[in-house]
Structures are given as structure tokens and as C-alpha cells.
Write a protein that binds this DNA or RNA. Structure first.
Lengths: 124, 124
DNA sequence: AATCCATGTGAGGTTTCCTTACATGGTCGT
DNA sequence: ACGACCATGTAAGGAAACCTCACATGGATT
């Protein structure tokens, strides 16, 4: 929904991200360097982060604290992205199926209307 | 709940607030000057805004567009604060009533327990 | 002992934000 | 019509926050 938009809106400067995650700027930039996050950039080249970025950073932090190294973390996130895109594919298929179904119904409705009488004023 | 904390967390720099509200920095500072918002300040004196601040700014914007002037807007917000604090007072009274009630019950429980036997191991 | 990895640190430069002060175009009462 | 006020624009000068790049460091691994 719209909450997904909100969560992915780049609105947080790095200073706030540091506070919220308890990471240093160096760490945050390092993780970006390894493509674990892709913060937005302002016209003036400043990083702006989203709430989703915060989540990812907190996950990274936990994994590092558990002893996982960058390579391992990268693998985990690649796998996650893969799963997410597969899920997205399925959603796309579902969406297309639903749309086909709706169009079929709409056609039937139209036929019915024509049979039942003149409803043409509702066709715009 | 916790969402109230989140909404009142000062995490947005003025540049982002400008985008989200479509107001100029001058306008935002002017409304602060009139005490309609009280953004947090960083150690370095930079304003940081919360989502609640955004809401207030959008309300101000709407009222100004409707032709209300600062004086009128101030009155509206003062009235709002008054109502909110009255509401808070009521909540406080409720809270105290509830706590009294719970303590009364607790005392009864204790008496009952003593009468029924030795439950002292549950008292800490 | 040499290497690597994650992070610290410092320099030098740019962007963003701050305050202060003055300018400006409507609106309003007289 | 005129001066006053209100909400906002704009510019200057300075400070804070952020940028990249480069080198340093301590712990783990080989």
C-alpha cells in the first residue's frame, strides 16, 4: 500500500541514521560501498536514507555482531532479493490473471446490457 | 502507543520538510517564529522536524490558502492545545481511578490469601 | 610474519543551514 | 489614494554537516 511508499521515501540524513542504528558514518558508507544499501542522493550529493534502509542496516549490524562477515551478509541479501523478485513475479502473474478475469466479466456485462436494453449512456 | 513516539521523533531536515509540504524555508521559519511549531535543534543548531510537525505545517498551509491569517491560525491551534490538555486531564483522572481500583482489589486479594492460607511466597 | 577485513581518523573541499536585515507586493482602514 | 501591516522573498556572511580520498590500526586467518 501507501505505507510501502512512505517506508521507501529517502528523508533521513546520515546523522539521524547514525543515531537510529548506532552505527558510525564510516560503517554506513562502507556497507553502501558493498551495495547492501543504495541511499538516494540530493542534488548536492548528500545521502538520504529511507526507513527501509534503516531496517537493512539494523539487520547488517545484527549479523556482524553474530560473527557473520561481509561476504556472508551479501549472500543472505542476494538470496532475499531473489526470493522477493520471485514473489513479485508471482504477484504479476496473479495481477494479470485478475485483470483478464475482470475484463471477461466486463465484456459479459456489456453483452448483457445490450441484450437487456439501451444502456449506452453509461459507456461514456 | 509507540507510533506516537515515532511520529514525534525529530528526524527530518528542513530541506525534506520543504519537499513534503511544498513550503519555503522562509515560511517554515516564520511559522516557528510564531510558535506554531517547535522543531528540535541539533547540537549544531540545525532544525529537525517530526512527522507531527509536517501535519501541523500542512494544516497551516491549508488555512492560509483558505484566507485565514496568522492571528486566526494561532487561535485555532491554541484552542486545539487546550482541548488536548483537557482530554489529557481526563485521562489522568481515569488513570488514577483505575489505579485506585486495582490497588483496592490487590488489598482484597491479599486479605483473602491470608485467610485462605500461606501464599507469602508470591509476595516477591 | 604477512595478509586481509572492518573500522578509525584526518585533511581539504562543498553543500546545507543558520541568523540578520532589508525589500516587496497585497490588503486594509482612514 | 496613502500609509501601515502582513506574509514572504532575497542576499550576505558564517558555521555545521557532509562528501571523497587516503592512510592507519587492531584482530583474525593463513
Amino acid at each position: 500500500m501507501g505505507s510501502e511508499i512512505r517506508r521507501s521515501m529517502p528523508v533521513l540524513p546520515i546523522s539521524i541514521v547514525m543515531q537510529l542504528t548506532d552505527l558510525t558514518a564510516r560503517q554506513i558508507r562502507y556497507y553502501e560501498e558493498h551495495n547492501l544499501i543504495q541511499p538516494h542522493r540530493t542534488e548536492g550529493n548528500r545521502r538520504m536514507f529511507s526507513l527501509n534502509d534503516i531496517d537493512v542496516l539494523l539487520e547488517i549490524k545484527e549479523m556482524l555482531e553474530r560473527g557473520t562477515n561481509m561476504a556472508g551478509i551479501k549472500k543472505v541479501f542476494e538470496r532475499k532479493k531473489q526470493l522477493a523478485s520471485e514473489q513479485q513475479e508471482i504477484s504479476d502473474r496473479d495481477l494479470r490473471r485478475i485483470m483478464r478475469e475482470e475484463m471477461r466479466q466486463a465484456r459479459n456485462m456489456q453483452k448483457t446490457s445490450i441484450r437487456q436494453g439501451n444502456f449506452s449512456r453509461f459507456n461514456q
